[in-house]
Amino acid sequence: MSALSEGGTDYDALFRDVYPSLFRYLHRLTGDQDAAEDIAQESFVRLLGRSMPEQEARLWLFTVATNLFRDGTRTSRRRERLLSATPWKPSALPAPDEALERHRKVDSVRKALEQIPARDRQMLLMREEGFRYDEIARVAAVAPGSVGTLLARATRRFLAVYDARLEEG
């Protein structure tokens, strides 16, 4: 495992390794590609000049990104309300049934992620990116011993909301 240091930082390798995963996490967390790009970029910029092992840097980046998202959420609630007033609609052009069905599912997944508690969302998405329980516990600020129970409940809540949205159609 390479170490990051101010002199010999392998930022390029770190970027290649972590950026896709961080972007995917943020895209799912925010539901917005531009926001995901901006937060991921800002997180890497804040890493500059810091010294830590690579695996720790990965967790550090996810922690900073999650905090940036939380801070941004506080200041953009009005924007979210405006956005939710104009929900995404499929194109008026005829599309294959399969594509429509996929769009409907993706939309329901996004809505379900928005509706479950923030901590549930964060924990589910971090597990999806391969983080261990002790790492999830640090970022979500919960006891490591409770992560399994919280993840099981988060899974049930997510699927319950998703199924309900799908039925609403």
């Binding site: 950026y19 972007f23 895209h27 799912r28 995901a36 790009e37 996929r102 993706v106």
Partner: peptide, 11 residues
């Protein structure tokens, strides 16, 4: 389901 929400990361 989470895997459905994918966007190509602009690496």
């Amino acid at each position: 389901l989470l895997g459905l929400v994918e966007a190509a990361p602009p690496v």
